[in-house]
Amino acid sequence: MLSRNRTEADAGMKMMIVDDSNIIRRKIERSTELDGVRIIGKASNGVEAVHLFEKTHPDLVTMDITMPEMDGIECVERLVDLKPDVLILVVSALSDKSTAIEALKKGANGFLCKPFTDKQLNQALAELIRGE
């Protein structure tokens, strides 16, 4: 995973969830069990995510790729433009290497393939926060 330096700010991280499936948004919200991580908003497509991001300035984002309006790859690029040190975990069913590489090139920091378990989600988020 690509990393960025995170220090004291990690104590209270704001997290945004982006996925066009309400079931997945709610699952990520329920499953996230990391100290100091607080869900501050959820969006169902890239356009909604950019608007919510501008209002709430999250530190951490989970990002789906296949979504209507604006896909996750474009959205990653937009969010990194707005806040270069945002941490983005792409959570997608698109499991080919080139999709992961493209997301990382645009500024994402990690990639988790759907379907995922609670343990896999928390491990991926923890690694992202630790900068692994």
Partner: peptide, 23 residues
Amino acid sequence: GEVANTISGNARRSFGSDFMISV
């Protein structure tokens, strides 16, 4: 919809990135 999306998306591991899936 999510089940169909996940199984189709996972197939890209074998079929490659030009196996484009819709929402």
